[in-house]
Design a protein around this nucleic acid. Structure first.
Lengths: 155, 155
DNA sequence: TTCCCAATGTTAGTGACTAACATTGGGAAC
DNA sequence: GTTCCCAATGTTAGTCACTAACATTGGGAA
């Protein structure tokens, strides 16, 4: 922490006023609302899990594929460090909550909404980690594969 | 820690030689192999997620429903403490790995196997947490609801 | 010019966890 | 029965992320 704060040119205290934890530095997710919003506009005729998956697919289409391998290398560090994986789950909790909230607002039973949201985020996170460990797979393909697995359409 | 170790009648050092972390005390899961084994014997004709779900359903049928509300109260503490939720994910990682491994052994693509395993564990964990927050739902019903949501058969 | 307040700094902690070394007790080898 | 061993436990003195309670400063509004 002393080194990080020094490198940032601030005191340790100041650092902690911006990031709750040292690990929090790595997780900056501004996509929560976009994902939840995209889920909300999917047809209510779908069951919760498929609706959530469709929402994520729609949200993902709006995000540019990352260039270079900075992202991949960063995710790789997270994927291979148990405590960081835990932090990642924590970082996803807010997205999960928002997605579940939207589903519940449309009349989905809370347990099913939360299960669908949790499964969605877990699936995407697993795809992200798996993607980071390889060199040639595209992130978009990995995510599409994960969504297909959730939906049961790919095999 | 001083209090916990004293209550256990050992020194802090001795405590840490038995449990890697203080939080680790709460997670003792001996079900890993049972779940992975149950997944393995499900029909290979099913897609990975459904197969995993069917396996967990079969494994669950072998476990007696917990009596009293000791378990519920304990899970409630975990569910409402972010850092403990993270530890729970960490505790599930081994089960997840074993389930994915069995699927891969049967020819499922690694990414899909890991996604299915992650989604399964996340769904069950979400159901467990939701169950802990209510007083009248049965754990078996909550889990069945979660599995149905994964499979897309309940709605 | 004065006042304010928000951001930043300083100091002195707390608490989980670790490394290095000392102690002990009971079972195996003789 | 004695000796030896070694595995489990204890002791001490740390490290490191993080926090609480203050002090300081600087720039913008009144």
């Amino acid at each position: 922490m002393a080194e990080i704060a020094a490198a940032a040119g601030v005191s340790e205290m100041t650092f902690f006023r911006h990031f709750a934890t040292k690990h929090g530095l790595l997780f900056d997710d501004p996509y929560d609302d976009a994902i939840a919003g995209a889920v909300a506009v999917q047809p209510q005729g779908l069951d919760p899990l498929r609706r959530a998956a469709a929402g994520l697919r729609a949200a993902w289409a709006q995000v540019p594929e990352p260039e270079g391998d900075v992202v991949r290398r960063r995710v790789r560090v997270v994927a291979s460090t148990p405590s960081l994986r835990g932090e990642m789950v924590r970082a996803n909790a807010e997205t999960e909550r928002l997605v579940a909230e939207r589903l519940i607002a449309d009349g989905v039973k809370p347990l099913r909404a939360k299960v669908a949201a949790a499964a969605l985020l877990a699936a995407v996170t697993a795809a992200l980690f798996e993607w980071s460990l390889s060199d040639d797979v595209g992130l978009g393909d990995a995510i599409e594969d994960a969504l297909g697995t959730l939906e049961g359409t790919h095999g």
